[in-house]
Design a protein around this nucleic acid. Structure first.
Lengths: 350, 350
DNA sequence: CTGAAAGCGCTTACAG
DNA sequence: CTGAAAGCGCTTACAG
């Protein structure tokens, strides 16, 4: 046998037509049990696999999804936010569970989006992750909906969006974690992140921060806000340094992402400030490393596992033309030592 | 226009045959400049994209590669070794740069490998990452080569392997980092990892460890070896605890992976042992978090960026039927504070 | 339950 | 430089 076996080869050996082979392989009820068995046996023997290109071409869909992961052009190659990597993992799993393959594509924020997987029939739909500045991305997103592209994005649910997104309740998450800080007696809480519609998720976390403060009778202090857009340790490090240098006094720090929080903790250590004794630190995301930080980082967990599934299921609905809507998932505080609420472990006693 | 435009639609509007459209789009020199321009303009206007399923079917290749990433069934979903994630990033980049798409598939170590991307023509070749116990994987790898599957694996170069692999020089990396520890005056160096052919990479790191000790006139002590196969913090944590409990005395620890090293550092802290004062700790991989550990982790860097490119280029050669061979890349020590060689920063003085 | 036939949308010898 | 035609390997109405 030269090259891969085709359905014709099997048909020939089984003494049936090629159409019957195709039916048997696809589990059609129109084939007798006996014929099916024979075909399956021969297929196995010949190590036959249906050619997806032919099958997809004929059926007009590819049973694969594409994930567009955007990356900051300033970051070095391998530094992708671990949170997105967790999402990637859960999306891959969710796809596999539903019988879909996953194509992954890293996009440069600066360039045109390479979003033609659907047009080329390589994928039936798109999942967008981390597309940067929302206000900049917006026109591209609108273009996608105008073109009838099937896609979902991970992110905040914004008022007048025309696309469909899945995100977590950042306002509630931010409020909950800041309430916790307040409950520990902290009063001067710095915020490292962003507070404008350019980055709606960070903005929402900031809103939650403000809500919690006001509910406690405190007014947010502009001097405690440090703008930090990129989710990297370096950015968090620098932001914390800046806050220290401002000499405005603070006893806690809420960073909009864990990576920033970890950078901030390092900065505080370098400046001789003890965490959590002098400054309580909390982050957002609950990346795997958070519990291994020193001290372990208190943060707000986003359920990436469920997020991946909701993302995929929503996209599948869109592809099938079923009604689909944006969804907001809960964000849960995870209390560890960096906020000062958990008694120090044995290592402190040394 | 109903549905997507096809090359026939363009041909009709351009007043040429469909074959000419196809040629123009693919940049064939057989088309006049003028015709090409006209075709391209119309294609753009109609937002035409060639159907990859049709194109791939006809050309008999898919211009996509598949990455099989294996995961430990015991680990929870999102806990993939950050080192592999870095590799994933670099492989994705390398593919994109060469015009290939990347299909990603997580495989359960326990199950049959879902390795039929090539048979189904969804991918032209495979990259294998983290397939667990080499001795167990071996028969499957052999099966793949027998089947004529195009693939490369990331891992140690083993003597009698029939497949092609790309890996780093683990012996040299292990030797270099242990030499460094010895140069700091450490004499009782524990090894957390594995020392058998089941995990050739860990075995090689152990070999390097032994070489360095012997070169310094020291004999490796079995009592200082803790078996740890999974690259997780928990495993590293437990291994370090076990070593402490053995009460054999040690002033340094070489963990076969950064994740294990970070778990070990936490265990030492919990047991009241100061790093690096009482125990120097070094890891392997240089994952992004290593520099943000507390203290920052000394480790051995594998160049994931280059690894991804070599992996992809090697696979492409195999696909094209060109001669290809396994390659071994250098592993470079990265000295930070956990080994005691770098003077403590300002945070220690507080 | 099965087969003959059309057709998915391209690419590429072949002929001019 | 261009066109007519075959064919990649399937799936699925249509007819029996």
């Amino acid at each position: 046998m030269k090259g891969r076996a085709t359905s014709f080869d099997i048909a020939y050996r089984a003494g049936v037509s090629q159409a019957t082979v195709s039916r048997a392989l696809r589990g059609s009820p129109l084939v007798s049990e006996e014929t099916r068995k024979r075909v399956l046996a021969i297929a196995k023997e010949l190590n036959y696999k249906v050619d997806k290109n032919a099958s997809n071409l004929r059926r007009q869909h590819s049973v694969t999804l594409a994930l567009l992961l955007f990356e900051d052009p300033t970051s070095d190659d391998s530094m992708i936010n671990p949170f997105f990597l967790s999402m990637l993992g859960s999306i891959t799993h969710a796809c596999a569970k539903r019988g879909y393959d996953l194509l992954i594509s890293f996009q440069q924020l600066s360039q045109d989006w390479h979003a033609d997987y659907q047009d080329t029939h390589k994928a039936d739909g798109l999942i967008l992750l981390g597309y940067g500045d929302y206000l900049t991305a917006r026109s591209r997103l609108e273009h996608l909906v105008d073109q009838g592209t099937h896609f979902v994005r991970w992110g905040a649910v914004v008022d007048d969006q025309r696309d469909i997104s899945v995100g977590c309740d950042n306002v509630q998450g931010g409020r909950a974690i800041v309430e916790h800080l307040l409950a520990q007696g902290r009063r001067r809480i710095g915020y490292i992140g962003h507070a404008s519609a350019h980055f709606p998720e960070f903005f929402d976390r900031y809103r939650g921060y403000c809500e919690a403060l006001r509910a406690a009778g405190l007014e947010p202090d502009e001097a405690l806000l440090v703008d930090a857009v990129d989710s990297t340790e370096v950015v968090g490090y620098n932001a914390a340094c800046e806050l220290v240098d401002r000499q405005v006094g603070f006893d806690a720090l809420f960073a909009a992402s864990d990576l920033q929080a970890m950078g901030a903790m390092r900065a505080l250590a370098d400046r001789g400030l003890a965490v959590p004794e002098q400054v309580a630190v909390v982050g957002f995301d609950d990346i795997p490393m958070a519990r291994f930080a020193n001290p372990p980082l208190t943060t707000v967990a986003q359920d990436t596992k469920r997020a991946g599934e909701v993302l995929v299921d929503t996209l599948l609905k869109i592809i099938k033309g079923e009604p689909a809507q944006s969804t907001l998932m809960p964000a849960l505080p995870v209390i560890r030592r960096s906020c000062g609420a958990v008694p120090p472990g044995p290592e402190q006693s040394a």
